[in-house]
Design a protein around this nucleic acid. Sequence first.
DNA 1: CGCCATATTTACTGTATCGTACAGTCGCAC
DNA 2: GTGCGACTGTACGATACAGTAAATATGGCG
Lengths: 244, 244
Amino acid sequence: MLNPSPRPPPMTNQPRPANRILSALPHEEFERLRPKLRDINFHLGEIVYRPEQQMDYAYFVNRGVISWLAAVENGNTVETGVIGPEGIAGVPVILGANSTPNQGLAQSDVQASRIASKDLVTEFRQNGKLSQLLLRFVQSMFTQVAQTAACNRLHTLDQRLARWLLMTHDRIGESKLPLTQEFLSRMLGVRRAGVSVAANSLRQQGLIDYHRGDIVVVDRPGVEGLSCECYQIVKQEYDSYLNG
Amino acid sequence: MLNPSPRPPPMTNQPRPANRILSALPHEEFERLRPKLRDINFHLGEIVYRPEQQMDYAYFVNRGVISWLAAVENGNTVETGVIGPEGIAGVPVILGANSTPNQGLAQSDVQASRIASKDLVTEFRQNGKLSQLLLRFVQSMFTQVAQTAACNRLHTLDQRLARWLLMTHDRIGESKLPLTQEFLSRMLGVRRAGVSVAANSLRQQGLIDYHRGDIVVVDRPGVEGLSCECYQIVKQEYDSYLNG
DNA sequence: CGCCATATTTACTGTATCGTACAGTCGCAC
DNA sequence: GTGCGACTGTACGATACAGTAAATATGGCG
């Protein structure tokens, strides 16, 4: 694992980060941004944003996944959206808010390019390519969250688990995902024991394998077949944002 | 359907509309917008936006409520968000998309100020008060949709019905709401029979009364007590956007 | 090797909601 | 006033989970 240095140096002369927004920027625009970016890492389970707390930074994700979670009074949580290298964590900053009721959580080890909120807002107001990409990304996130709302109401746990694995698989880029059932239960908003049963179901169908905190997607098309349509709807939206 | 009156007249010399965004604009900015606005009405149940279809207009709601619905393959639908006089229907236009996978539906008779998408985008790029208000509104909607996702997973039908009635009550501004159980079932994503049971439960607690498509909120504090915390969380977000 | 913390499986009961079906009620058109 | 369509209440077994608890594996560590 990469250890974060106490005061990360600017990115001068480093190659352009893997983040899809940053890599889609015109040279000039990226160079204007570059001195304001800092490399930063989060560990699995680390809290990126706390509910109702000032959001001083936004994070262009280069590797790994950051989840947005909603919590209710009894301590239960549900994931409402997930962000990988296709996007930025800190959308409310762009939208002019400085906090949200939700929590940002590193769903894996994460490498990101950090930017101060005020710098991001300043650049956003230039109405350049960055603005366009950020807005389109917000639209994609919006679709994702809306579809999650529908999915949570209308689809079974097996389907939702399959969808969740697909989304994470897409973003992590490896078949082996570091996920305990306990962790999954907080994402899916169900009991641990419920995840156990659902995961077992997928395993017995030969779609996944897992072992003490590591899930391996064995039969990706099979998982796609089990998942609900929600996966494709959201994926299509992300594809169109990055290619349109 | 999408364009009932053949060619509505401009709003010249009419008083400023009731929409909270429009009414919060500085004089100059509103006057710049005024010639581009047209009064338009939708009837209860009318489709404002069809999934995946070009969004030529956005609508500042002056009276009534427009819902965003997600549909799944078997025909089931769920409301993901709701917009009243505090906002604008057509957020994806601002975000640079020209369609969404979701459906916009008039949840009551609606009076709105219509604006062409390209005019809205042009004005949005001025980075004036309108831009700020629109972005903050998007953030509020975002919170609403995220909370709905959590609510759909974690709260009971009684609670969700109570929350839904409160949200609609806030926006319609009348105690009597024109809602059949069939309609409610499509908003809440449950069976019509399920709504019958839940509505009966609320009625027997003396919180609401209803009769063949008209629901009356009798004991508003009582409904708030039954509703889950999701109502307050979202309401607070809207209040802060309109007052901050 | 054996212990222990962690992760997972299983089990049982209770509840929410589904899918479906049917009957009752009301209001309006004729 | 009668009939019909729209709206509502109720019932039934089936299913998906919740809540809780206990048993069982596994891997790391001493």
